[in-house]
């Protein structure tokens, strides 16, 4: 998962984004223009986004997955923990297209719930990280000086600390009495803020030197007013791109922690648990591990495609 840390924020890895060959040319973000005519910008952006076929496919997949995993269980009254003891370990049937597990539970349903958990954990923890990173980065970038220096040192240290290790240490240090999902939010948030902070600081510094900001400051606008009115809208694009890459990275973090017993509590399914438990029975019952691996892989792919599409929209100069 740390490689996504890199794809999100590392300037080196940033160049690893796909070039125009498959994904069409990206328009360099004219941030000021986008701010001035937001509506036209959105429509235009959407058109550009739609030119990336994989991104559209990814978006469609994600939308379908979200609908299926959030509405499906409610509409069809599906239960992820109740099994039918007479139908265990079926590889495939009309009733259970993904088969069933040792408890006779339907794997399609469990996959949907796993998707739901992954999405919830990923979105919330990315927001936590973003919020932290945005606060720290914006203040560092805007105020500059010693504070900025200090913050950037801190960010460097966070980068020096391999993310997985920090994540494991944090999850061990958080008391077990807490809901595992909440500890995931906290831990993933705490390990991923540095990337956002660096990104936002850079953008803020860039925007700060723009003429219109200078002008606003001369007119006596307060710092928070300038941040809110002029700077934040201009850096929305790169943040959206970063978030769209942060989500699959957080999903990987969540499932990776299940491998070492720090994931969600069973019987609540998560992709990590499904894959690892399935891997144990792999020789006799390959379907147990096949489906979760495929759905998990596809979901990661879809989010990454969307990220690429957005990267094209907002330009790669991020």
């Amino acid at each position: 998962m740390e490689e996504n840390e890199n794809t999100v924020v590392d300037p080196l890895a940033g160049q690893m984004l796909p070039d125009e060959g498959l994904f069409g040319p990206g328009t360099p973000a004219d941030a000021a223009a986008a701010a001035r005519s937001e509506r036209v910008g959105w429509r235009h952006n959407f058109r550009v986004f739609c030119r990336h076929k994989p991104a559209v496919a990814g978006l469609v997949y994600v939308v379908l997955l979200v609908l299926a995993s959030f509405l499906g269980p409610a509409v069809f009254d599906l239960d992820y923990e109740k099994g039918d003891a007479s139908e265990t370990l079926i590889p495939f049937s009309a009733e259970h297209p993904f088969g069933t597990d040792q408890q006779g539970r339907d794997l399609l349903v469990r996959n949907l719930y796993a998707a739901r958990n992954a999405i919830v954990v990923a979105v919330v923890s990315v927001l936590v990280g973003l919020l932290l990173g945005a606060l720290i980065g914006a203040f560092a970038g805007y105020l500059g000086g010693a504070l900025d220096l200090l913050t950037m040192r801190l960010v460097d240290i966070m980068f020096a600390f391999p993310q997985i290790l920090l994540l494991i240490l944090l999850l061990v240090a958080i008391p077990d009495s807490m809901d595992r999902r909440i500890s995931m939010f906290v831990a993933i948030g705490l390990t991923s803020w540095a990337g956002y902070a660096r990104l936002i600081r850079g953008q803020v510094m860039q925007a700060r030197n723009e003429d219109y900001v200078e002008a606003a400051r001369c007119l006596g606008a307060s710092n928070s007013h300038i941040l809110r009115k002029y700077i934040l809208p201009n850096i929305a694009g790169p943040i959206i791109v970063a978030v769209s890459f942060g989500i699959p990275s957080a999903m990987m973090a969540e499932s990776g922690m299940s491998l070492i017993g720090l994931g969600l509590r069973p019987p609540m399914p998560s992709w990590g648990n499904l894959i690892y438990e399935g891997a144990r029975e792999m020789l006799g019952f390959p379907h147990l591990v096949l489906w979760p691996s495929i759905t998990f892989g596809l979901t990661l792919l879809a989010f990454t495609f969307i990220g690429d599409g957005l990267g094209g929209v907002y330009g790669k100069d991020r």
Binding site: M16, S255, G256, I275, V289, S293, F296, L300
Partner: peptide
């Protein structure tokens, strides 16, 4: 795919 899918899933 190779870049996105985590190594433990690939391993499995």
């Amino acid at each position: 795919v190779g870049q996105v899918v985590p190594p433990y899933v690939l391993a499995v």
